[in-house]
């Protein structure tokens, strides 16, 4: 059996995941990256997106929003503002949020409201990540 790496996902409202897994793939600063057991010490910021970890041949998906992650001593720790697993995601709500954000973005362009645009963009990214994760997770 392959070696395992300990994965921990911690959010301000409590730890979400704490288990030994085969591989973790996450949306890092420079794109998605994968981490296997005994990875070198590593620190990266995390973008909004989908986190995938494989355990016993089964893939699990999590939607994470901004934060950072640290790898050391065969342990990978994600500190993110929020993390949701596929079945927790309300697809309808994410779809509505996506539409709302897209509409806002279209409007904001004409008004050139920078702050609102940034906020809408973040909302759109979150909605898209949620949808992606929800789609991949087993029902």
């Amino acid at each position: 059996m392959a070696e395992l790496i300990h994965l921990e996902v911690v959010t301000p409202s409590g730890p979400v995941v704490s288990e030994d897994v085969d591989i973790v793939s996450a949306p890092g600063y420079g794109g998605d990256f994968g981490v296997l057991a005994n990875h070198a010490p590593f620190l990266s910021t995390i973008k909004i997106g989908g986190l995938v970890y494989k355990k016993d041949g089964k893939e699990n998906y999590l939607m994470v929003s901004g934060g950072f992650c640290e790898v050391s001593n065969n342990k990978i720790t994600f500190l993110v503002e929020s993390a949701e697993s596929g079945h927790q995601i309300d697809v309808d709500r994410a779809l509505r949020a996506k539409e709302r954000a897209e509409k806002r973005l279209a409007e904001a362009k004409s008004q050139a409201e920078k702050i609102n645009m940034a906020r809408a963009q973040a909302a759109l990214q979150r909605a898209l990540a949620r949808l992606k994760v929800a789609e991949k997770s087993p029902k």
Binding site: Y29, F42, L43, T45, F68
Partner: peptide, 10 residues
């Protein structure tokens, strides 16, 4: 540590 991006940016 490997930093991504640079430690300063982190």
């Amino acid at each position: 540590y490997i930093y991504e991006p640079s430690p300063e940016e982190i």
